[in-house]
C-alpha cells in the first residue's frame, strides 16, 4: 500500500526524495520504496523520517484496519 501521507509530508517540507534521504542518511531508493509501499521499514527508520518531517508516527504511518 502506497504511503501517500509520507509523500505529502515530504512535499509540505519541500523536500525531494534525495534530500530527505540525505538528511536521514539512507539512499534515495529506500525513501522511494517506503513511499511506494514496497519496503517495510524498521521503527528506527520510521522515527528518523518522522523526526525530519516534524510529524508523529501516527500521522505518517498509522493505517486503519
Amino acid at each position: 500500500m502506497k504511503n501517500l501521507k509520507m509523500k505529502a509530508a515530504r512535499a509540505e517540507k519541500d523536500l525531494s526524495q534525495g534530500e530527505l534521504a540525505e538528511k536521514i542518511g539512507v539512499s534515495r531508493q529506500t525513501i522511494g520504496l517506503m513511499e511506494s509501499g514496497k519496503y517495510n521499514p524498521s521503527l528506527q527508520l520510521c522515527l528518523a523520517v518522522c523526526h525530519v518531517l516534524s510529524k508523529t508516527l501516527d500521522e505518517l504511518f498509522w493505517q486503519d484496519e
Binding site: I24, S27, Q29, Y39, P41, Q44, H51
Partner: peptide, 13 residues
Amino acid sequence: RWFKQKVKDEWIE
C-alpha cells in the same frame, strides 16, 4: 537519543 543515532540504510542491508 536512540532514534537520533546514525541510521544505516536498512533496505541495502
